[in-house]
């Protein structure tokens, strides 16, 4: 699905990377554990997390993940958004929980990594 579909499905707000909403994303991975994210080998992943700190952005950068969905209205800091922008990472926030967001995205065709 396109990132614009993700935004619509989770009633999201795009905080960074508005210009990338036509980008396709194939897989979803929900985790607050960054070491777990670092084990992923697949591409085209949407990271769904409640961990709103610099390491979430850094981990995405290191893992070549180009889109992050922060759940429960987590608001990344300006430093985080600057870092995301620098690395072409689109940042979306949703009022929904990780469970609800993952469920809706799965139901609408976003595949799991495992």
């Amino acid at each position: 699905m396109k990132l614009s579909d993700v935004v619509q499905i989770v009633n999201g707000t795009v905080l960074c990377g508005q210009e990338n909403l036509e980008r396709e994303v194939r897989l979803g991975f929900a985790s607050d554990l960054m070491s777990d994210v670092l084990t992923l080998l697949a591409d085209d992943i949407l990271l769904i997390t409640g961990l709103s700190n610099n390491q979430a952005i850094r981990t995405a950068e290191m893992s070549d993940i180009l889109q992050i969905l922060f759940v429960r209205n987590k608001r990344p800091t300006k430093t985080m958004l600057d870092l995301a922008h620098e690395h072409g990472i689109t940042v979306i926030t949703t009022p929904y929980s990780m469970f609800r967001s993952s469920g809706l995205l799965f139901k609408n065709g976003l595949d799991p990594v495992y």
Binding site: L33, S35, N53, A56, T59
Partner: peptide, 15 residues
Amino acid sequence: EMGFGAGMGLSNIRK
């Protein structure tokens, strides 16, 4: 709290 400390770091490095 930073998303680490689950005891996976060294094994991730080894892999």
